[in-house]
Amino acid sequence: MPIHEKHLIRPENIKSHDKLVMDGIDISGHWSTFIETRVVKDYNESLQDEIAALPGGEYVHRCWQCGSCTNACTVNAINPDFNPRYWIYLIRMGMESELLRDKDIIWQCVSCNKCTYVCPREVAPEGVMKATAHWLELKGHTPQSPSTIFDDVFSTQVIETGKIEDSLVVRNFFQRTGQSLTQDWLIEMVKRMVAHLPVKMLMALGIATVLRPRTKNWGGARDAIKEYVAEQDAHHRKALGLESLVEMAKLEAAAPFKQAAE
């Protein structure tokens, strides 16, 4: 049986009784020893294969659970529920429903690569986190995360023109996530940015937003990249058993992401 170090004491698993007497002794109240018996029956036997079929997840099978990744993790230091070692365990065991309990935080991996640096088995846990976040979205378990939207906004611009222009990426991202561009800290930032700038430079910055930087003769690369990405996308969907139109329709419906304006 797997060892579920912290999940055993999740509040919903603990039994409490307003009035319970056993063998003449009053044991009413909240007892961590009265834990709901848990039987896992819903294994997804292909979970590891599905994650391994997505970019970054290729080496998940190598893991021997040393926990170095979680120990080194930047995000874990801020949020202890962010536990790559445990998620890799769940993926390898096929415990999908357990994994889904953390579905809303897996995308928060900041790609600092500390885990990949310390991993003695070359699992590349950073890649596994990205593959898992990708898997959650493809399967329709989560809407597109802000991170995926940012990747999309950024990559689309790179693929279309060969280069990016910072301010356009920012504007497109804020628009797609429904955030205001007039937040106090953004205004303060722009103020400080232009505080010492000469007029000539401000004009140059303005011109860059109109005449977007682009790589010359990029059309061939653009088309070849698009073709390859579409091909890969079809492969991934097939590996996840998502090729049917019904599934596709469901995905479309689950896709729109709106974050309340801050």
Partner: peptide, 20 residues
């Protein structure tokens, strides 16, 4: 006539495109 390296983002769309 250089192009963007893909930064931290393109690899999440496809790592091999970033390598390209």
């Amino acid at each position: 006539n250089w192009n963007c390296c893909g930064a931290m983002e393109v690899k999440n769309v496809d790592p091999k495109v970033q390598t390209y």
